[in-house]
Design a protein around this nucleic acid. Structure first.
Length: 277
DNA sequence: CGCCAGGACAGCC
DNA sequence: GGCTGTCCTGGC
């Protein structure tokens, strides 16, 4: 299947894929290849339009829009954020087009357990190594693209195989997560409210405040989540004169930016990281 | 070579 | 509840 998603000034594929919410995507021949469950979503920006096609399992246009955050009314969200804090005028001017994605929770949880105390290239490498090791994927125009492993595949891994991935101190978190995981966990979670979801996520070993907020924001449609990493910690201080623990700063961010704190967080991150200020 | 990265946790107070 | 030391690995 293929088609084009309407030209939108408020959508940047580049910013959406490079703001740290998703690690596994490929860029070849001017196209982005984004694995999503048993599909590869192929995206190309041409003449200010986004052209898409899907390889593997079918995805409807509305599913694709949800994955890419195109169902969010960012014009409204942007003015909402500027209203809450005027400093967001310049931040949004720089970061505009970034969208919060909606990705598979199982993959997001493992991705952010892998992300602990690690840089993006390292996280990406770990996830690709794992996906390639399990080896399920599809070939498109001569290139092989790998899906993220299913939980049953990961359950079958031996400790020796897992050790070969060199996850370091994250290994014990990963092992416990895949061993204890059952398919209904995230489905049940989706029924709960924000605070209940957060508390259940925090019970997972290796999931602290920051990782929990990432899972909430990028895979459970909780746009009020506010993950605090070192960049946001610095930003909260320089922009809002707020200091404290990750938990306190997350509460602070959610208090200032309400139901769209997640957009405030990603905009801030992208701005601090790439604007050169 | 040394340093630390998009944190979590136990142990301590 | 907050603070501190510790932790694997790869990149610079």
């Amino acid at each position: 299947m293929q088609g084009n998603i309407e030209s939108q000034k408020t959508f940047s594929l580049e910013k959406t894929l490079h703001c740290g919410q998703v690690f596994r995507f490929y860029f070849k021949r001017e196209k982005f290849f984004l694995p999503f469950l048993n599909s590869i979503l192929i995206l190309e920006e041409k003449d200010k339009k986004i052209f898409y096609s899907v390889s593997g399992d079918t995805l409807s246009e509305s599913e694709i829009k949800k994955i890419l955050g195109l169902n969010h009314n960012v014009d409204m969200i942007n003015s909402y954020l500027v209203e809450r804090s005027p400093v967001y005028k310049k931040i949004i001017e720089f970061s505009n087009g970034l969208r919060i994605m909606s990705l598979p929770p199982y993959e997001v949880a493992i991705s952010f357990i892998f992300s602990i105390q690690s840089s993006i290239p390292v996280i990406k490498k770990r996830l690709n190594t794992l996906s390639e090791y399990i080896g399920s994927g599809t070939e498109i125009e001569g290139d092989k693209f790998y899906f993220f492993p299913k939980s049953r595949d990961l359950k079958n891994l031996s400790r020796k195989e897992i050790s070969s991935f060199k996850l370091g101190f994250r290994e014990k978190f990963f092992v416990e997560f895949i061993e204890n995981y059952d398919e209904t966990f995230f489905e049940n979670l989706k029924q709960l409210d924000y605070e209940e979801k957060r508390k259940k996520l925090l019970r997972i070993k290796g999931v602290g405040e920051k990782v929990a907020q990432c899972i909430l924001l990028f895979s459970l449609d909780e746009l009020s989540a506010f993950p605090v990493d070192v960049w946001i910690k610095r930003g909260m201080k320089s922009l809002f004169n707020k200091i404290g623990t990750e938990r306190k700063l997350a509460e602070e961010g959610r208090k200032i930016f309400g139901e769209y704190a997640g957009y405030a967080q990603e905009y801030m991150y992208y701005f601090l990281r790439f604007s050169g200020i």
